[in-house]
Amino acid sequence: MAQSPISNNIRRLRFEHGEMTQKDLAEQVGVTRQTIVAIESAKYSPSLELAFRIAHVFSVTLVDVFAYEPNDDPIWKKKK
């Protein structure tokens, strides 16, 4: 599978918020623990709504949680 252009800091943010478990975060944002696992390991890019919910749980902005790397995006790779 191609590398996702979206990376995230969820693991670090969980650690900084009292070592919040994946299950706790999943329950707060309304998804399964497996979805949090998949997002953390960059196997799944969440919807904008879910991304905002995750940022809201940590009281940070979206860019503090997710980062976009255009060089890893197949759309721009094709155009180069």
Binding site: G30, V31, T32, T35, Y44, P46, S47, L50
Partner: peptide
């Protein structure tokens, strides 16, 4: 069993 079906599912 997961009690919800989320967007990824």
């Amino acid at each position: 069993e997961p009690s919800i079906t989320d967007e990824r599912d």
